[in-house]
Simulated scan of single mutants.
Amino acid sequence: MSRTLVVTNDFPPRQGGIQTFVAALLDRRPPDSLVVLASDHPGSAEHDAALRYPVVRRPTGMLLPTRATARAALELVDRYGCDTAFFGAAAPLGLLAPTLRAAGVRHLVGATHGHETGWVALPGSRQLMQRIASGLDVVTYISEYTRDRLAPALAGRTRLAQLSPGVDVDRFTPRADGAAVRQRYGLGEAPVVVCVSRLVARKGQDVLVAGWPEVLARHPGARLLLVGGGPAEAGLRRAVAARGLQESVVLTGPVGHDELPAHYAAGDVFAMPCRTRRGGLDVEGLGMVFLEAAACGRPVVAGTSGGAPEAVRDGVTGHVVDPRWPHAVAAALTGLLDDPARAREMGAAGRAWVEQRWAWPTIAADLARLLEP
């Protein structure tokens, strides 16, 4: 069997969306088809010992395309007979591609994740992305939105192909039980709108807070559950206090990955009115939280930023709203709370769609095809 060298900075036990993405893809590959070159992180030895494929760690917290990294990659190509390579994030490690090709690696694939749309918008980083793409056979994108931003700069230098993140439909499921979460935060039997995300301006939690009085006017017992931590937390707490919403808005702080399904399940509706900022440099690449919520059988309300609308079938699995207007967000939420049967119908449609389109076996099959020369 041919073997793939995976070169990545983004790998557990370091936490993050890209790390989860890369690890989930590799977990679904034949273990004897892989060898991983990664940066180091506390707990790496214990993590790697449980894996079915070999992982070699460079003694650095940030793997860069240096001569030392190139030598380590070439040693693995030679030792394991690798004929394909996959870069967990194309920039900047994809700069190693020409060196690996000269050593006999026949097919090289590099992934992008969303932030690269900002890279290609700026002259210096655009040239770097073009150089990387020229050395790769395939550059992947996570959504049609990101493809549309990458293509003008990269098309003609490489092949672009979609490789989106997937959802673990066995973890994120309508069977997830939110009762303990409701009890923990004193939510009782109230209708709950939940947002699971890092607390940063792009995600739009402030818009939820601004529109929440309109929701309360129609559903006085409703609760807003903001799950996650981040730099916007202090400002959100001030906004909640200024509007006198302390009794109906709960900020949980950071929550462990294992607890996320229960937090989605604690809500009746999921909402994250994400918006694009900084002239398009701060944008939602796709929005996996919408798909995880849908997998849990919850209707979703999404903003229009970037690829987020691609994670919602508007009017079927939820609604896409203009995140600039708290009134529009509040109207979508009250509409779902007004009609619980319709909300459950949308949640069921979302679950079916995620199983069909976004489950990890489907995504892993996409990667298998992309790794074929």
Rank of each mutant, 00 (worst) to 15 (best):
S2Q: 15
G156D: 07
V249S: 00
P326L: 04
G17H: 07
G178H: 04
D314W: 10
G43V: 06
V249E: 00
R28L: 08
S305C: 06
L37P: 00
G43A: 10
V6N: 02
G188Y: 12
L333E: 03
R71A: 06
I142E: 01
Y264T: 05
Q19F: 11
L187T: 04
E214V: 12
A311R: 01
P174C: 07
G81F: 06
P213A: 10
A271F: 05
T276N: 13
V120L: 11
L370S: 09
H319V: 11
L336C: 04
H319L: 14
Q205H: 07
R157Q: 07
H263R: 11
A241I: 10
S134I: 06
T8A: 15
H113N: 07
W212F: 09
G267C: 06
S143Q: 06
L96R: 00
A121R: 15
Y145N: 01
A89F: 14
A265L: 05
F270A: 04
P59Q: 08
A161E: 08
E214L: 15
G186Q: 09
Q183W: 09
P326R: 03
S39A: 15
L5S: 00
H107L: 04
P373L: 10
L224C: 02
V250W: 02
L208S: 02
N9L: 14
L100G: 00
V167H: 04
V35D: 02
G285D: 00
L76D: 00
G253T: 05
G156P: 02
E247S: 15
D258S: 15
G104N: 04
G43F: 10
H263N: 12
R28G: 06
V200Q: 05
L160C: 08
V167D: 00
R237Q: 13
L100D: 01
S39E: 13
W212M: 08
R278L: 11
D170W: 12
I132P: 01
T60A: 08
D338R: 08
E116S: 13
D268S: 03
R298H: 10
D282T: 09
M288H: 02
R58L: 12
E189W: 15
A328P: 12
L208W: 03
G287R: 00
G204K: 02
G350Y: 01
V354H: 01
H41P: 14
R159L: 08
A50F: 09
Y145I: 06
D137M: 10
E116Q: 14
W358M: 05
D366W: 13
A239N: 11
E372C: 13
P65E: 06
T334R: 03
E247K: 13
G229K: 04
R324F: 09
W325S: 13
L160D: 03
E284H: 03
A49D: 10
E345I: 08
S134P: 06
G88A: 05
W212G: 04
Y80T: 03
A308Y: 02
K203P: 01
D10F: 13
E75G: 14
L260G: 03
L286T: 00
G61N: 14
L76H: 01
E75C: 11
G81K: 04
T317K: 04
G335C: 08
R29E: 13
D10H: 15
V55I: 11
Q130I: 05
V169A: 10
V36R: 03
L245R: 07
R28Q: 10
P373F: 09
S164E: 08
